[in-house]
Structure formats: C-alpha cells, structure tokens
C-alpha cells in the first residue's frame, strides 16, 4: 500500500493539523521572526511617527548598555550558584525519598508543595520572612547564639540577591527531585546486587553506578535549571524590582523595562534576539552532550 492520500484522507489531515499550525504560526513563529526584523527599526509601542529602518544601531547601543550587562552578569551569577546547589539538593532528596521507608510518599508530597505554589505568592511570603524583624533574622540570631546582626535582606545590596537565590532553590528543588526520582527508578536493581556481591560499599555504588546511570537526567536538570535562571523575572519584579543599586537586575527585567515601560519595541527586540541566541547556545550544548552519551 503506497502512501498516496485519497481526497478524503487529505481533508482529514488538514482538519487535524491546521488549527494547531495556524496558532503556532501566528503567535509563536511570526513574533519570533518579527523580533529579528523589529530589532533593526526604531519601532515604539504607540507612536504617531513612521517607523524607520536604523540598521545595527540598536545592537550598537545594546553593547554599550551597562544595565544590560549588569543584568546578564547577574543572571550568570544566579545560574552559577543556584544550579549546582539546587541540583545536589534535589539529587539528595530523590535518594532519600527513594529509600523503602514507610510513609515516604507523604514526605515527597511535602517537598513538592512549593513547586505547586505560584511564584508571585512565594515571593510575597518570603518578603514577609526577610523582614528585619522577621523569621529569617530571628532564626539566624538563634543559631549563632545572638551573634547575628539584623539585616534588611531585600534592601541591602549585598544580601538581596542571595536572599532571592535561597528562595528560588526552595521553590524549585521539588521539581528537580521528581525528575531525579524517575531517573533513579530506571536504574536496574541487578547492578546494585552485583556490586554487593563484589563487596562494594555505599559510596562506591553511588560513584560507580548511580551517578553514571543518571548522566542523561543530570544533564537535563543542569541545562533546564540554567535556562530558568536566564529567564528570572517574577520574583525580582515583586521583591526588589532590580534594586537595590541594580544588584538584582536581570536581562528579562531589562527587556520588560525597555519594551513595555519605555515602549521601545525596536530596542527590546534587539535584547530579545541576543537573549534567544544565548538560550540557543546552551540548548545546543545540551544536545551535544546527550548525543555523545547515546553514541558511547
């Protein structure tokens, strides 16, 4: 039977794929392509003046824009600190939850609850806890036996970003834990049994079986958390709005301020393009690592 389509079947195919394809083209592919075009213009959101083609001006300005680089630097600092901590924590949690202990599912539920909670709510609750008279300051007082000096976390340019990092780890770890858990459950039990017979201890099993077997899962978690770090916006907007002294400023906040608040659509499109190229580069690295794995 050849794959020639009868007229009826052709109509059926179109019926199935057209609605989705139209929506994707209109609201994803079109704006994506438009970002390249708009980035070469002085387009504004609302303007009575005609739009002009201005060549590479937006990009030239972008590379002299200190605020953009402050944001980019902060995004990478965030990734560099949050990604390893969150990944290790999530792996540890997955391993504890994977133990055959009674009632372990209840604990798993608890760890996942922050992930189900909306980031806006999380930001509001943690802002309350970061208050100078709040829970976190008093907790630090208690564990340092009173040697802790009270800080107004979110208004202090040294503390604001670490405070947001801690909160983000708290919110995101449960999600990564579940992905690691799925990876752990796919490791064949027989590998561990064989190692036990060979007299391997727990550490050796962890280094020689668990970690190598989790390579794909770990790569996925590392890369997806890195990309999330680049997309940082909600908690920043609510808790600090980029301050104090731009210490929590991020690329997406810059995008929002330029494209929405200042209505410079052309300039914001140039930011969009650069942002996308960075995300693309990271995704390509992920694919390369995973492909290598498959070939081995």
């Amino acid at each position: 039977m050849a794959y020639a389509l009868s007229k009826k079947k052709k109509r059926a195919v179109l019926l199935f794929i057209l609605p989705g394809l139209c929506l994707l083209s209109m609201f994803m592919i079109l704006p994506f392509l438009m970002s390249f075009g708009l980035s070469f213009t002085n387009q504004r959101l609302l303007s009575r003046y005609a739009t002009e083609f201005i060549g590479w001006s937006n990009y030239e300005r972008l590379f002299r824009d200190d605020l953009f680089f402050t944001g980019l630097k902060n995004n990478f600092v965030f990734a560099l600190i949050v990604v390893p901590i969150q990944t290790v924590l999530a792996l540890g949690m997955a391993m504890v939850v994977n133990k055959h202990l009674k009632g372990v599912k209840i604990f798993r539920t608890a760890y996942f609850m922050p992930t189900v909670t909306t980031m806006v709510v999380v930001s509001v609750v943690w802002t309350f806890m970061y208050n100078p008279q709040g829970l976190i300051n008093n907790f630090m007082q208690a564990i340092t036996f009173g040697n802790w000096e009270t800080v107004d976390f979110l208004k202090n340019s040294q503390w604001a970003f670490p405070a947001i990092m801690l909160m983000s780890i708290w919110q995101g770890a449960g999600f990564q834990m579940l992905i690691f858990l799925a990876g752990l459950q796919e490791i064949p039990e027989i590998l561990y049994e064989a190692a036990t017979i060979d007299g391997a201890n727990k550490w050796r099993k962890f280094w020689n079986i668990t970690l190598p077997q989790l390579r794909n899962t770990t790569t996925f978690v590392l890369i997806s958390t890195t990309i999330l770090a680049l997309r940082l916006f909600d908690q920043i907007k609510i808790m600090t709005n980029g301050g104090p002294n731009d210490s929590t400023y991020t690329v997406i906040l810059h995008l929002y301020n330029s494209g929405f608040s200042k209505q410079r659509v052309g300039y914001a499109s140039a930011i969009t393009v650069v942002f996308f190229l960075i995300v693309l580069a990271i995704s390509i690295v992920q694919r390369l690592i995973l492909r290598e794995e498959r070939e081995v």
Partner: peptide, 22 residues
C-alpha cells in the same frame, strides 16, 4: 520543526507579541 520550536522560551517572543496584539 515543532521539536525545534520547543527551544524558544516565552520571553524570546514576548515583546514582538505585545506589539502584535496591540
């Protein structure tokens, strides 16, 4: 093509989309 589109984060289309819906 659809697999490739998965790479695009929402932030990478937000501003042109804003202009479009406006």
């Amino acid at each position: 093509g659809i697999v490739a589109l998965m790479i695009i984060p929402f932030e990478a289309i937000a501003i042109p989309l804003l202009w479009l819906v406006n």
